[in-house]
């Protein structure tokens, strides 16, 4: 018994119960068969408040990847996409070479090669 809600209200509310119809179980199981995909299971673990932000981040990432992959670089001999090309605008040729070459020499040879490549900024 409620200590502070009117007793009449409590009793009427307790009696106000809907019962499932005879076909409910069949309909519920049919819907489970339609909805039980892996994608829904993954989203189920993401809190509802974080979903819009995650969806926006995923869309942005996808758009950047598509843009990078599908758009040719602004200069013909570059083996990079337009996003990389944009980010590399400020790098000197020697810097690019320094970061990209996987067989760099050591010591004095390295300094020589850097100066040959045009030097660092």
């Amino acid at each position: 018994m409620s200590e502070w809600l009117p007793e009449d209200f409590v009793q009427r509310e307790r009696q106000r119960v809907f019962e499932p119809d005879a076909d409910f179980a069949r309909r519920a199981v049919a819907r489970i068969g339609q909805n039980g995909s892996v994608a829904e299971w993954v989203w189920d673990y993401v809190p509802s408040y974080a979903r819009p932000m995650m969806a926006a981040a995923a869309m942005l990432l996808l758009a950047l990847i598509s843009f990078q992959w599908m758009t040719p670089a602004p200069f013909p001999d570059a083996n990079v996409g337009i996003v990389d090309a944009y980010l590399q605008v400020d790098a000197a040729p020697a810097e690019e070479w320094l970061y990209r070459d996987d067989a760099l020499p050591e010591g004095e040879d390295l300094l020589i090669e850097i100066s040959m490549a045009g030097g660092l900024r």
């Binding site: 106000r16 119960v17 499932p20 409910f24 519920a28 489970i32």
Partner: peptide
Amino acid sequence: APLVFRLASRFYRSREDVEDAAQEAFSRFF
């Protein structure tokens, strides 16, 4: 289902709302 319907009946006033909530509850349950 009777238990689910009874609980959902506490929060909704129409059968449609109660049934929708029950359907979703069973989807999440499974």
